[in-house]
């Protein structure tokens, strides 16, 4: 039995670390590819989580929705008892996730439309504002978010392989999500689109001179990144089955994602994933330190973990700014007169 518990803890950790990896990939499109400094990662994460929660949780008179997508869809094809109903209900989770991504993208577009032309440091300042406003909105607009009581009863997808297989099954979903996002943005990175983004990051004026609409490309990258963060939020909502203002610590979430990306290697998608898992290991591993202290000290010792991550960030910045896996931009297309050199 103990072994099963250990495995479950492992699956649980992979799920959470994986959700952070998705966020790190989203941030990589913004910061790593394009040089957009977004300090409001958590805002898009929360928006995705709440949207997905509203779409898939059962109806609650205390707030608008939930729209119980799985139940509704299952009804359409013969009820939740039937196999087809189960299947369609599970599949409708995807619609919930897409909804979360869409709303995060929409917010990203609105915010980006206003602020994306700003200098990077000004954009960073503006993004704290976004984060703060989203936090306040979730806390205060009870008609939509149920305020501090939060939204419960979000379904955790799964086919019930065996008793207690939830985390294992969810882990598969998370790994698939990472895979899809990875393939998609890795291809984008190697495509001409990614080349333009790198050029924007390195030398905006040269791109302007080449006749490209820099602002439009930056906006695309920003919205793309926000969409991925929204997906991470949706996954998180399904994973925890409950969202509330207290469940999120926006400043900490944003911070962790940043450290993950920088430690892993900005601009390198594998680095982002590696960084997410490595920092998550440190973060959750350090929980054991706090559990070693008597209970009355826990509230004081808990911030030690944040301190540790902060120190890691400074050490990385001082000693290895390129991260564990440095960016490796694809070679420029080989021209004819360079071709002979390749054989040598």
């Amino acid at each position: 039995m103990e072994l099963a518990g250990l495995f479950n803890y492992f699956f649980f950790s992979i799920c959470l670390a994986g959700i952070y990896a998705v966020m790190a990939l989203g941030l990589n499109v913004q910061w790593g590819y394009t040089g957009i400094l977004n300090i409001g990662v958590a805002a898009f994460f929360q928006i995705g989580a709440y949207t997905t929660a509203l779409l898939t949780s059962p109806d609650n008179p205390a707030h608008i929705g939930g729209f119980d997508l799985p139940g509704t869809f299952a009804q359409l094809v013969g009820g939740e008892g039937a196999f087809l109903g189960q299947l369609v209900g599970q599949a409708s989770i995807l619609i919930g996730l897409l909804g979360g991504m869409a709303v995060a993208a929409l917010l990203g577009f609105l915010i980006g439309w206003i602020t994306i032309g700003l200098r990077s440091d000004y954009l960073a300042i503006a993004s704290i504002g976004i984060s703060e406003i989203v936090r306040l909105f979730i806390q205060n607009e009870g008609w939509l978010t149920n305020g501090t009581r939060g939204i419960a009863g979000i379904p955790r997808p799964g086919i019930g392989l065996y008793n207690g297989s939830d985390f294992l099954e969810f882990m598969v979903l998370v790994v698939v999500a990472i895979g899809v996002v990875y393939v998609l943005i890795e291809r984008a990175y190697r495509a001409p689109w990614g080349r333009v983004l790198r050029a924007v990051r390195e030398n905006e004026n040269a791109v302007l001179a080449a006749g490209k609409d820099v602002t439009w490309f930056r906006l695309q990258a920003f919205v793309f990144g926000c969409t991925i963060m929204g997906l991470a939020g949706g996954l998180y909502a399904h994973f925890t089955t409950f969202v509330s203002p207290e469940a999120f610590r926006p400043d900490l979430t944003t911070f962790l994602v940043w450290v993950m990306l920088i430690a892993g290697g900005s601009g390198n998608n594998r680095g982002a994933i590696l960084g997410a898992f490595a920092i998550w290991a440190v973060w959750s591993g350090s929980e054991f330190i706090t559990s070693a202290f008597p209970v009355e000290y826990v509230t004081q010792i808990a911030p030690l973990r944040v301190l540790l991550i902060g120190v890691i960030l400074q050490v990385v910045l001082l000693t290895r700014q390129q991260g564990l896996l440095p960016e490796r931009p694809p070679k420029p297309l080989v021209t004819d007169d360079e071709a002979p050199n390749r054989s040598g």
Binding site: D251, L252, F255, W258, V259, P303, L304, V306, L307, I309, G310, V311, L313, Q314, L317
Partner: peptide, 8 residues
């Protein structure tokens, strides 16, 4: 990062 360090 320093902000988080000081806060902690």
């Amino acid at each position: 990062g320093m902000a988080l360090i000081l806060r902690s």
